[in-house]
Every structure is written in structure tokens, then in C-alpha cells.
Computed example of a mutant assay.
Amino acid sequence: MASQQPIQNQPNQGVEWMSAPQAVTGAPPGLEYLGALDQIIVKQRVELLEMLSGYETQNKYDVKNSMGQQCYFAQEESDCCSRQVCGPNRPYVIHITDNNGQEVMSVRHEFVCCTGCCWCATNSSCGYEVAIEAPVGNIIGYAKQHTSAWKPHIRVLDANRQEMFVLRGPCCWGCQNVYCTDDIEFSVTDQAEDKYLGRMFKRWAGCGRETFTDADTFGVTFPLDMPVPAKALLFGAVFLVDFMYFERAKHSY
């Protein structure tokens, strides 16, 4: 099980940070940046050791706005052995910090022995789920894999496990991840799937990077006037999508 201790922020040197926002009513402390955004980009850093040897290291991410300005830094905390043996099933915590190194949010995943089968994922003992905390220790919601025939299907829930959003990915995502030279998109809709709200996507990074590393770039769009806690839930769901579908893929082919 991943420990409860936060990991020290390790931002890029010389990075341009987004200007500090004003206070936003209803925003968890430190997440005020999200109030001014309708899109965030989550870019995983390339780890040379992992690229050359296949040794799985702790993931690190730079979180930016559409102008390329950094708003957060994220880093995985997990056990070395579980990273090598358990793959995306491993327990982990994603610590999200601001430009002062203050942890403002976390995404927590417990170990699962299930392989993430899409046909039985809704069962409480199967499928992947993360708890999203903001501030740390205060759960604001969950992102959970749900049953589907073939397409990726994730439901985003509030703290009371009431459904808020539905994410659905493309059919045969595994083949697309390896062979398709295009972005892979997940639609974001309301809980009834009647209203399109945005999209979550993984950018195509080029043949070399797609083949030899799982350092991917993700993004999520949402309405500018969406409440900050709701944006934070979709932000947290990005990491579940990464671990479920794209950490696994590089080790499966």
C-alpha cells in the first residue's frame, strides 16, 4: 500500500507558471486555478531509465493551461516492487501540488486483483476506482470503471457516490493506441448521457515515443463556468484513464 506521506514537488527549472488566481467561491484551497480554465493539459515526463530499460519508475506530470503555462505538478507515490509486478493494478497515490510545493489534491487507488475486465467492472470487487481528495483527506468524489461491451466506460461520482459524469472511449482502444497516428478521445457527458460537456483525450506523440515509453500527454476540456470541484473530479479522472488504458498498453504488446 502506498504511504500517506506527500512527495516533495519537483517542478521544471525555468518553467512559466500561470498567474496566481483570485479566490473562487466554493473552490477547495489551492484549486482556484481551475476556475479560470476550460481545458487542462497533463503531460507525463519522459524518464530515461524507463525508456532504455523498461524499469517502471514513479510517474511525474506537468499540468498546464492551454497557453502552456504550468498550474500544477503531479507525482505518483507507489512501491517499487508493485510497479514492476502489478502494473496498473498497483496501489498508488498521485500527489498534486501548486507552484509553492503545497499539496492541494490527491488521487488514490487501492490494489485490485481483477484485470479490469469491462464485462464485470461494475461489481464492487472488480474494475478500477480512484478516490479524489481536495484538500488531502477530504474525498470530493470518485472515478470508477463500469460495465461495457467493448468501449471504455468510466463514471465520475460525487462524495456521496451520486453519478455526475460519464466518460466513454473509442472501440478497440488498444489497437488504436499502438497503430493509430491520431489522438484518442473520450467523450464527457452528463450522468444521463444526454448532454455533451467536453472531451478527454490522449495526444499522439509520434512512433518512437509511442513505442518505447508510456510518457503520454492527456487533456480534458469542460465548460468554463463548471464548478471547480466538478472540474477537479474530471482532472482526477485523467489519471485513472492513464493507468487503466495507457500504462497497461506499453506492457501488453
Rank of each mutant, 00 (worst) to 15 (best):
A23V: 05
T25L: 08
T25P: 06
G26V: 02
G26S: 02
P28F: 11
P29A: 09
G30H: 11
L31T: 04
Y33F: 13
A36E: 14
L37R: 02
D38N: 14
V42G: 02
V42C: 05
K43F: 01
Q44G: 00
R45Q: 12
V46A: 01
V46C: 01
E47Y: 01
L48Y: 03
L48Q: 01
E50V: 01
E50L: 04
M51C: 04
S53V: 04
S53I: 04
G54W: 11
G54V: 07
G54H: 10
E56P: 00
E56R: 04
E56Y: 05
E56N: 05
T57H: 02
T57P: 02
Q58M: 13
N59P: 07
K60A: 02
Y61F: 15
D62L: 00
K64S: 13
S66P: 07
S66D: 10
M67E: 15
M67H: 14
G68C: 05
G68S: 07
G68F: 02
Q69T: 07
Q69L: 11
Q70F: 04
C71N: 06
C71S: 07
Y72C: 09
Y72D: 08
F73G: 00
F73S: 00
A74G: 10
A74Q: 03
A74F: 01
Q75T: 03
E76N: 07
E76G: 03
E77Y: 02
E77N: 05
E77F: 00
S78T: 10
D79L: 12
D79N: 14
C81G: 10
Q84L: 14
V85T: 13
V85K: 13
P88K: 03
P88I: 02
N89G: 12
N89S: 14
R90I: 08
R90H: 12
R90N: 12
R90T: 08
P91H: 11
P91D: 15
Y92V: 02
V93R: 15
V93K: 15
I94L: 15
I94D: 14
H95R: 08
H95A: 06
I96Q: 11
T97Y: 04
T97K: 09
T97Q: 11
D98L: 09
D98S: 08
N100Q: 12
N100G: 10
N100S: 09
G101Q: 06
Q102R: 11
E103W: 01
V104C: 07
M105Y: 07
M105A: 11
M105I: 05
M105L: 14
M105G: 12
M105R: 04
M105S: 12
S106L: 10
V107H: 12
V107S: 11
V107M: 13
R108V: 13
R108N: 14
H109S: 13
F111T: 07
V112K: 14
C114I: 06
C114Q: 07
T115I: 10
